[in-house]
């Protein structure tokens, strides 16, 4: 038993302490967070735009050109693996861009946008149509009604699934190693390719991901509770 502890301690030492390897994990975590954070922002912007486009209808009730474009975007993104999208973005579309984080942010942002669009669309549709009618009957335009009445209420509906999407996004960035970005997962792989031990680097990376996501979900839970207060005052 004692020798087992010593052994684990040695593995820990090799995986994190030796040659200041903990600094590698830290910079890997930095890349992971940078990509996830900016991709989440881009995803929310793209998702909101795509959701509003998809919801727009022509006067005769048929889908508009904008809504068809949004539908195609969502279909393509949801119908292809994110790692393939990343490789296409890296090796084909932006093959001359040297800023790897930027390429990853765009790829993941565009990917996340499609899922966010569906979440927001569902959130908007869940707001009682009477709210829109009341807004329009007062002379507010479609855009004003959306802006001041529907979207504020939709945000409460979409916050839990959006939070979930952020968590999925953060974890999905683990594939950026495919295009030579040194994110947390890649760093764990790099360390294990030096020490020839997969255990500590991978468990270490898993623990770091878990802690980050736990913090994220606590923050999201708090935000959700604050927004719900307006229902009960």
């Amino acid at each position: 038993m004692q020798s087992w502890f010593i052994h684990v301690g040695e593995m820990f030492q090799r995986a994190f302490i030796k040659e200041d390897r903990w600094k590698l994990y830290l910079s890997g975590l930095g890349v992971t967070l940078k990509v996830a954070f900016f991709a989440a922002i881009l995803g929310v912007i793209l998702g909101t735009v795509a959701a509003l486009m998809k919801l727009s209808v022509k006067k005769n009730g048929k889908p508009s050109v904008r809504s068809i474009i949004a539908t195609i975007y969502i279909d393509i993104i949801r119908g292809t693996p994110s790692v393939v999208q990343l490789l296409i973005m890296w090796f084909i579309i932006m093959k001359n861009c040297r800023n790897g984080v930027l390429v990853a942010v765009l790829s993941f942002g565009i990917n996340s946008g499609a899922y966010v669009a569906e979440i927001i669309r569902a959130g908007i549709l869940a707001v009682d149509h009477g709210q829109t009618e009341a807004g329009r009957s007062l002379g507010l335009s479609q855009a004003q009604t959306m802006m001041y009445i529907v979207i504020p209420q939709a945000i409460k509906n979409v916050l839990p699934p959006i939070g979930n999407e952020f968590i999925v996004l953060l974890k999905e960035t683990a594939i950026v190693g495919y295009v030579s970005l040194s994110d947390l997962t890649r760093v764990a792989n790099q360390v294990s390719s030096r020490t020839y031990e997969a255990f500590m680097p991978l468990i270490g990376a898993a623990v770091i991901y878990f802690v980050i996501i736990k913090i994220l979900s606590i923050l999201l839970g708090r935000l959700e509770r604050r927004l719900r207060k307006s229902d009960r005052r």
Partner: peptide, 16 residues
């Protein structure tokens, strides 16, 4: 670092 050497060569060609 890439999973495949050919990707490393591709990015050399891409100027990265």
């Amino acid at each position: 670092s890439y999973n495949k050497a050919v990707d490393a060569v591709n990015d050399l060609l891409n100027g990265r």
